[in-house]
Amino acid sequence: MPTAPARPGKPLLSGRRGTAEMLVLKTFLLVPFAALIAAVPLLWGWGIGWTDLILATVFYVLATLGVTVGYHRYFTHGAFKAGRPLRIALAIAGSMAVQGSVIFWVASHRRHHAFSDREGDPHSPWLFGTSPAALLRGFWHAHMGWMFQREVTNADRFAPDLVGDRDLRVVNRFFWLWITLSLGLPAALGWAFSGTWQGALTAFFWAGLVRIAFLHHVTWSVNSVCHLIGDRPFASRDRAANFWPLALLSMGESWHNSHHADPTCARHGVLRGQVDVSARVIWAFERLGWATDVRWPRAERLAAKRVQQPG
């Protein structure tokens, strides 16, 4: 699925969220966050077992790859082509991360690339200046503050290919169902494995709420931390940076400078020793025949983008 060109004749925004929509949004952002805060005293004393830990890990990996491989590298940037079953599966898996429906997410992220770290970027930490106070405000805005705003990126401008895809419109319409499954399946499996309501409750808490909140903050750190600090070995039009401590948890997304230097590349960790789990998954899809026309990094393009070190 190649990335469709934006339609600059259309407005940047398509409207504003209503009060009811803002209430639902805040619920799904703040309730998991509250669960994450509560997890510290719970983990210290009681309430987590091997079943909860395994379920949390499985659902974390599934939803994270749905975002990194599906929402990001495939739907947003067209880093490879996929058949209908994989396309639908990736859209559903990404939806289970509870970061927004597939069309909303892709439109917002394409807008980010179109205006990266300048006016029009929905979540740049550099929009308010470079003083310590401005950067603190910018960090909050880039990390999660931007999602509490009422403005909605115009999908007809930034994601016309997804809007025109019937399968994706259906997946997008049933976003509420994928959220329900993301929370309900861990609880159901916790009950099935333990045979108790306590097992269902702890699985719902750890593999549902806490897992969603933890993944939220890993993803949001790419927007905030990876535009503030880190290495910049490649030339890009913005301040995107590689931040290695997040590489494994983000499945390779924190090699952010490399990505912004070559957005359609299927591998973000392009240098020696840079772990990129998402790229390995795409490689596996290619070997299985599920992914074709994969845009792997090319040596000559990397060399052209490489920043020359002084001396």
Rank of each mutant, 00 (worst) to 15 (best):
F175T: 00
R173C: 00
L189F: 09
W176P: 11
G190I: 01
A207R: 10
I212M: 12
F193M: 14
S194V: 08
F205N: 05
L189V: 05
L201V: 06
T180A: 15
G190P: 09
A200F: 05
L181T: 03
W206H: 11
I179E: 10
G195Y: 15
A203H: 14
A213D: 12
G199M: 06
R173K: 14
T196E: 09
A188W: 10
L185R: 03
W197P: 11
L181K: 01
L215C: 14
L181I: 04
F193G: 05
L215F: 12
G195S: 13
W206M: 08
V218N: 07
H217P: 13
F193Y: 08
L189I: 12
W178T: 03
R173P: 00
W191Q: 12
V210W: 12
A187S: 09
W178R: 01
G208D: 12
F174P: 02
A200G: 15
N172R: 02
R173V: 07
F214A: 15
F174L: 15
W206E: 07
G190T: 00
S194M: 01
A200Y: 04
W178I: 00
F175V: 01
N172S: 10
W176R: 08
A207P: 12
L181S: 09
L201I: 06
L185P: 04
H216E: 15
A200K: 04
W206P: 08
I179L: 08
N172G: 01
A203K: 05
R173D: 11
I179M: 14
I212L: 14
F174I: 05
I179R: 12
G195R: 13
A200Q: 04
A192D: 02
L183W: 11
L185K: 10
A207T: 11
T202C: 05
L177P: 00
L183G: 03
G199F: 01
A188N: 03
F204T: 03
I212S: 09
A187M: 13
F175D: 03
L189P: 07
T180V: 10
A213Q: 06
N172I: 03
W176T: 04
T180R: 00
W197C: 07
V210E: 13
